[in-house]
């Protein structure tokens, strides 16, 4: 299958030609297929947010190409604008960008900019609100009267309402409580299933990416250091530690068990750990 989104030899330099010049992306290439769930991890300042802003045409690459469905999004002004709608980007702490009088109007901002009919806008707003668990009553209140976690949901709904084929989220769960985190993550997964959308999620939680994603992109010092399924990435624990990253806690525990001579496989999620322990217990009972 053709990739929906492809990045070729991407370079990006901030404030080029000034004393503050900073190379934020260094020759990054990868491709993403429809329906994939991609995790992006990397140390603070490794260029994750910069990379995400290249993918919907917010930042123009210094050199290299961003291909959406095989065409360069910078080859034509119309295509760049199209890319904004087809690739939805939820920023870090998106709740600080709400501005309308009501939640409904705020979610409708994106679809309105797309020039859709009022009926279609209405349908999308309600559907998007449904995805993130915003109730009918909440649609009528001011977004500033909601709690932090609810504001975050509204902001995410504002992007989902554009029904992007690729949904990018920059640390969507940062600063939320465990219940709020789990809620938002399952909303995202629901959206992916419903629309066969591609999800790209920047996250600092190794547990979350191990459990949810099909593939991980590991950024390190402006470069793409790894591009592999979570299991393969977390098997390279030493390299990750050198990049200032960690592995999921259960993985760490099971590596410790292996060193103690317990016969267990590598695991990456709680579910796998439970299965592995059950197998071990079952095996011991028979012995």
């Amino acid at each position: 299958m053709n990739p929906i989104l492809e990045v070729k030899n991407l370079n990006y330099i901030y404030s080029a030609g000034t004393p503050f010049e900073h190379k934020a992306l260094d020759n990054v290439s990868f491709a993403v297929s429809r329906g994939e769930f991609i995790g992006i991890i990397g140390h603070t300042g490794s260029g994750k947010s910069t990379l995400m802003q290249q993918l919907n045409g917010l930042l123009k690459p210094t050199s290299g190409e961003v291909l959406l469905d095989g065409t360069d999004i910078w080859s034509d002004k119309k295509l760049t604008r199209q890319a904004r709608f087809r690739v939805g980007l939820v920023f870090q702490y998106p709740e600080y960008q709400l501005f309308e009088e009501t939640v409904y109007k705020d979610i409708a901002f994106g679809p309105k900019n797309m020039g859709l009919s009022p009926e279609e806008i209405d349908r999308r707003v309600r559907e998007a609100a449904g995805f993130v668990g915003i109730t009918e009553e909440q649609l009528k209140v001011s977004p500033f009267d909601l709690s932090g976690g609810q504001k975050r949901r509204v902001a995410i709904a504002g992007v989902i309402a554009m029904e992007p084929e690729v949904l990018i989220l920059d640390e969507p769960t940062a600063g939320l409580d465990p219940v709020g985190r789990a809620g938002i993550l399952s909303n995202i997964e629901q959206y992916r299933r419903a629309k066969n959308a591609t999800i790209m999620m920047v996250s600092h939680s190794m547990e979350d990416v191990a459990r949810l994603t099909d593939r991980l992109l590991v950024m390190n010092g402006s470069k793409l250091a790894m591009d592999a399924p979570p299991a393969q990435v977390f098997d390279r624990a030493g390299e990750l530690k050198d990049m200032g990253l960690s592995i999921p806690q259960v993985t760490e525990v099971f590596l410790g068990l292996q060193q103690l001579g317990v016969d267990v496989k590598n695991v990456y999620t709680i579910d796998q750990a439970v299965a592995e322990l059950k197998r071990l217990k079952g095996g011991a009972a028979h012995a």
């Binding site: 919907n56 917010l58 904004r84 980007l89 960008q97 994106g110 554009m162």
Partner: peptide, 13 residues
């Protein structure tokens, strides 16, 4: 800068 980018991502012109 940040807010502008975020609204642009929602198609603001």
């Amino acid at each position: 800068d940040k807010i502008m980018s975020a609204q642009k991502a929602r198609g603001a012109d």
